[in-house]
Computed example of a mutant assay.
Amino acid sequence: MFSRLALAIGILGAAASVQVQAAGAAKYLPPLSDTVMADLAKLDPSQYETFHLQNASDALTKRGPPNGLRGIQERCTTSHCYDFTFDDGPYNNMRNIVDHATDNGIKVTFFVNVNNYDCIYNQQRVSDLRYAYGKGMQICSHTATHPHLNDLTHAQIDHQVQGVEDALWKILGVVPACIRPPYGEANDDVVNYLNDRWGYVVINWNYDSGDSTGSTTAQSKAVLRTIKSPKHAIVLMHETVDTTPNNLFPAAIKIAQDNGYTAANHQTVPQSLGFNGYKVTGTRGSRDSTWTCNGYTPGQG
């Protein structure tokens, strides 16, 4: 799915798609934020990897999400798949969740903001993200400040998308190919825009633990007990709810095991949907004056 870029990239607009030649076949660089494009233009192509969106014989304008995963994805597709997902971080419990997952031999997916419960550039948040990524967890976008996307213009959506792309490129050296709309809200126009302009797979869920809407741990466990193999499950949880990483998540792993799922069934969302979770992978950056949440008012979700 990856191709090494065969020529230097000029600085283009965020929605641009670039044709490159690799092994004689046309490949396409996914749409990226202006900041990431500018950084890539300074690098030798051997210093990063990128995947194209779709094969296209003669149309430069053919773009879209990886593997043609259009629309909103609400369930995983691999056999007996069961995906734990955590929204609204990075925050205080990310490392705890990663440790529980690692100890049980499973992978989880985090959908992160730039400035929601905390600024993503704060040193502890940087450390936690690098810890999670280093342990093989997937990091996806949850927008910069957790707004209602249906209420935004396309230009405002661009601002939300680019903020996360810039931050994860600087902190981890990656740009995600997956996004979860805040509150699970995205109308057809928003979904099509995220698919076509930004090349994102849009991911929601089909089982909500209810941890962020007032459910007790016991009530959340009752929901999870209904998920029995071979059901295909994407489960919504929140790392910002203290009872989730400390109580619910460890119990959820045991419940899933009792219901017929093995550690191998607990994959990242991109793994269980069959696409590469990152549009670009390279080398993480070093802190400078641009590592700031200025311009991103803290979210409330």
Rank of each mutant, 00 (worst) to 15 (best):
G71D: 00
I72G: 01
E74G: 05
E74P: 00
E74H: 09
R75M: 01
C76Q: 02
T77P: 03
T78H: 13
S79P: 10
S79R: 13
H80L: 15
H80T: 11
H80N: 15
C81S: 13
Y82A: 12
D83E: 12
F84A: 15
F84I: 07
F84G: 12
T85L: 15
D87Q: 04
D87S: 04
D87Y: 02
D87K: 00
D88C: 00
G89T: 03
G89Q: 01
G89H: 01
G89N: 03
P90V: 13
Y91G: 07
Y91F: 13
Y91I: 03
Y91E: 08
N92L: 13
N92P: 01
N92Q: 06
N92K: 11
N93E: 05
N93L: 04
N93D: 08
M94Q: 06
M94T: 09
M94W: 01
R95T: 15
R95A: 15
N96K: 15
N96V: 14
N96L: 11
I97V: 04
V98G: 04
V98M: 09
V98S: 11
D99H: 04
D99A: 05
H100I: 03
A101D: 05
T102D: 14
T102M: 14
D103A: 15
N104Y: 06
N104I: 07
N104W: 10
N104V: 05
G105A: 00
G105I: 00
G105D: 08
G105L: 08
G105Y: 02
G105T: 02
I106G: 08
I106W: 12
I106S: 03
I106D: 03
V108I: 07
T109E: 09
T109D: 13
F110Y: 14
F111V: 00
N113A: 00
N113Y: 02
N113S: 00
V114W: 02
N115H: 11
N115V: 05
N116F: 14
D118E: 07
D118R: 12
C119Q: 07
C119K: 10
C119S: 09
I120R: 04
I120G: 04
N122R: 03
Q123E: 15
Q123Y: 09
Q124H: 05
Q124R: 13
Q124D: 06
Q124C: 11
Q124P: 09
V126P: 03
S127H: 06
S127M: 04
S127I: 05
S127Y: 03
L129S: 07
L129T: 06
L129I: 07
L129G: 07
R130K: 02
R130V: 02
R130F: 03
Y131L: 06
Y131P: 08
Y131H: 13
Y131V: 06
Y131S: 11
A132L: 07
Y133L: 06
G134A: 12
K135G: 11
K135T: 04
K135I: 04
G136K: 15
M137R: 00
Q138S: 10
Q138P: 07
Q138R: 12
C140N: 09
H142T: 10
H142C: 07
A144W: 01
T145Y: 14
